[in-house]
Amino acid sequence: MSTLAPPVVKGTRSANSGGRSGSLGWLVLPALLFFVTFGVVPLFGVLFLSFTRWDGIGAIHPDGLNAWRSVLGDPQLLHSLGVTFLIMILSWLVQTPASLLLGTFLAGHQRYRGFLAVLYFIPLLLSSAAIAITWKALLDPNFGLGAGLGLSFLQQDWLGKDTLAVGVVVFIVSWQFIPFHSLIYQGGVRQIPRSIYEAAEIVGAGRLRQFFSITLPQLKYTIITSSTLMVVGSLTFFDLIFVLTAGGPGDATRVLALDMYKRGFMANLMGPASAIAVILVLVGLGIALGLRRLGGTDQTDSMLEGA
């Protein structure tokens, strides 16, 4: 992220040149039309719907604060928030060190590492539905990997016990996304000037020392970017959990997005479901802004200018 500086210069330059062509505005209209219709309007729509009663088929009735009252008064909300944050934090804790390590490793230019990278990224291509289905079969206590290999510790009812199920979700999420974050770190590491390492070597700093004193601090903005994506992304683990456990066993993996789906499209209570969607948006925005603040203001500026 620190390298966002160059675009800033170019940005101001082209802005100066573009003064005369103010009539290009209409070129934005098609994109704007689509985005406003299916992005901006729904964002306000979901807030509006949270003050209504609607079964998803019939007419929409204004309902005051009833939906909010029922959602906020329901212990299910706290539970879903808890599960969401638990999965968020655990998957961050697993993914970040692993991605940093792999990203640093992949940043080397050796040929075999490039080859490894090609293979690493295959999980990224699979749909969450495919991944969930695969792991469900692999972890099946009777027919899965554990039974096939006769390894009893693998032969657990992985998706049938509360804590195990949460662990499995965290593991699969990590399996799916560690390659992606490694890729981000790979890019970050490659942008660190070699000269810093050369200086460190002259002073006689070891590899580990170099990692902690140079690589890690230099990657500050990359870490923030990657963490933001991880954390905000974890709010949207819907398809994976839906196919894997459908929120179960019991409600053990019923994250916010799943809670919204179940209330809205299974119990036909669109009002409360919309209220949860609003909470989902607020949590996501809150975290994203918080993490951005962590990165300092310079990042925000260059983000906006660069774009």
Partner: peptide, 13 residues
């Protein structure tokens, strides 16, 4: 904006 958060109004539209 995550798609999931606005899926109910999108469905309505």
């Amino acid at each position: 904006i995550p798609l999931q958060a606005v899926i109910i109004p999108v469905y309505l539209i």
